[in-house]
Write a protein that binds this DNA or RNA. Sequence first.
DNA 1: GAGTGGTCTAGACCACCCT
DNA 2: GGGTGGTCTAGACCACTCA
Lengths: 237, 237
Amino acid sequence: MTTAATPSDKGSFRVVKAHVRTRIESGAWGPETVLPGEVELAATFGCARATVSRAMRELAEEGIVERRRKAGTRVRAVPLREARFSIPIVRDQIAATGNPYRYRLVAREVLAAAGRLGQRLGLEPGAEVLRLTCLHSAGPAPWQVEDRWISLAALPQAAGADFTRHAPTEWLIAAVPYSQVEVSFLAATCDARTGPLLAMNAGEPVFVAERTTWWQGRAITHVRLTHARGYRMTTRY
Amino acid sequence: MTTAATPSDKGSFRVVKAHVRTRIESGAWGPETVLPGEVELAATFGCARATVSRAMRELAEEGIVERRRKAGTRVRAVPLREARFSIPIVRDQIAATGNPYRYRLVAREVLAAAGRLGQRLGLEPGAEVLRLTCLHSAGPAPWQVEDRWISLAALPQAAGADFTRHAPTEWLIAAVPYSQVEVSFLAATCDARTGPLLAMNAGEPVFVAERTTWWQGRAITHVRLTHARGYRMTTRY
DNA sequence: GAGTGGTCTAGACCACCCT
DNA sequence: GGGTGGTCTAGACCACTCA
């Protein structure tokens, strides 16, 4: 028995996981250390190998540990760090601030796809696109401008939808619930279009999220979300 | 048997998972649909309940499905969307562009913690802090300015470390490998300090990441990373 | 109360890959 | 070749929560 684990509790993959994690975080098992095998740990903790297996699998998913057959499980030298951001529905995000959520459709037009946007949506030149500009506010304070393009080739029923009362996001979630998404975050300069809506001056820095959505391999919609002054996206991990 | 699944393959939680996912994404099992129970699915797929269980657990973790005892498993109305960003080491990030990674220590000073920063690090007024300003470049092109504060109360050995050749990140990863982290992303205006380093004009918008790191409940370091023009953080999910 | 998911066990076989 | 993780099974008991 090379390990000096304290099998204070029996069973439960959570117990095993917590023990091992503590040991690593405290430095007792430093980077590159090869951990005892599953059978040995199972004996140490007095549980089945499957239980240890699940604990270790989860630690591996969290990037703390790295596993390979035959080589065994070792503590990662550079922990694989991953931040997770839940992608909130604007409405919920604003509601969480305690302010009432307000929505307004600012502009709506149908136009022909062209240039970069057409490429982004994988459209043939001239294909029709529905463009919507919306404002989401927290009470009286503007929160986010949504500038959205929807491919009418992919989603013709969007042409008839009423976006004056409800945000396109909510309609889209119902229409295309499970899709593939690419998001980017970047800093930009507030332009003359969004500035007035956000009560900001042209030239101020704004935090922008861009999102393109595909469904079954076909581009559905692209959106540019420009946030009001002072916006931060925060997470812990 | 209410399901008409096609148990084309036997066993394997991956097969079960893929089948169920396809069914949901295609719309055959729409939002709010209650899926068949584990025992039924196990019979359908001709495998053990544990196998189905694992498949469903993973789908739940991915936010596609929601499970409750007694109530069963149902398709989420609003898919719980989570974007994951791997937190890259700058060096790797730059190396991936094909350019050589270059590092330069711009400034180093020891000062007394004060104001917002002291609070952020949970320091008593007057506690010593090591402040480092570094520049990371992709070949000749500046990439990111790192403005870092390290609590000397928490990590006294940082005072003696040599940061002229290697970035503090690498030293810190070795010193405090597993820690708790809070990150924020925001848009800011390029200031007079970082502007020249990034070959940017004061007033240009910059993408900023701020990160605070704790170890065993104690704040260790805080860093502000200011990215050069055109930086985007992108992910798919 | 009863039905669902949540977890554990003991045993088995397999796939990979280091030595 | 052999040792490690990866997965599956069959059965069991438990915990939660809905009706």
